[in-house]
């Protein structure tokens, strides 16, 4: 049985990477073929188009819950800073890194508003 693996490392550049100048205008929504279920604070994502599944930890789950097509990256960043004991800069770096991974794996779509 294959071991779980960290999804696409955030260090890998991609044409889909989040544009940091667009954080206040970049809306995030789940891809149509992705279904998510939360269990005990963690989230399992199933991509029906590829058959792959993914798990998000507690913080990843909080971020995913706000990717409903209504919140911008800046909105989600504000939620993290308000709710968690974390420096603003670190929260933003981690948020952008995770969003990049989710977009690169085809789990999230981003669009401007």
């Amino acid at each position: 049985m294959a071991d779980p693996q960290q999804a696409t490392p955030p260090s890998i550049a991609s044409e889909h990477a989040v544009d940091r100048t667009m954080l206040a205008r970049s809306i995030l929504r789940p891809s149509p073929d992705v279904q998510g279920t939360s269990m005990e604070g963690e989230t399992v994502l199933l991509d029906l188009s590829t058959g792959r599944y993914y798990t998000l930890n507690r913080l990843g789950s909080v971020i995913w819950e706000h990717c409903t097509g209504h919140s911008t990256i800046s909105d989600i960043h504000a939620v993290l800073c308000d709710r968690f004991e974390v420096a603003s800069e670190r929260a933003l770096d981690d948020l952008v890194a995770l969003v990049n991974q989710l977009v690169q794996e085809g789990l999230l779509q981003q669009e401007g508003r």
Binding site: P4, Q5, Q6, G51, Y54, T55, R83, D94, L102
Partner: peptide, 21 residues
Amino acid sequence: NTEKKESYVQPSLVKHELLKD
């Protein structure tokens, strides 16, 4: 405001095997 904030951990995404020999 003395509201206690939750502890922070780095958000992570883990990919699992294909949905199985």
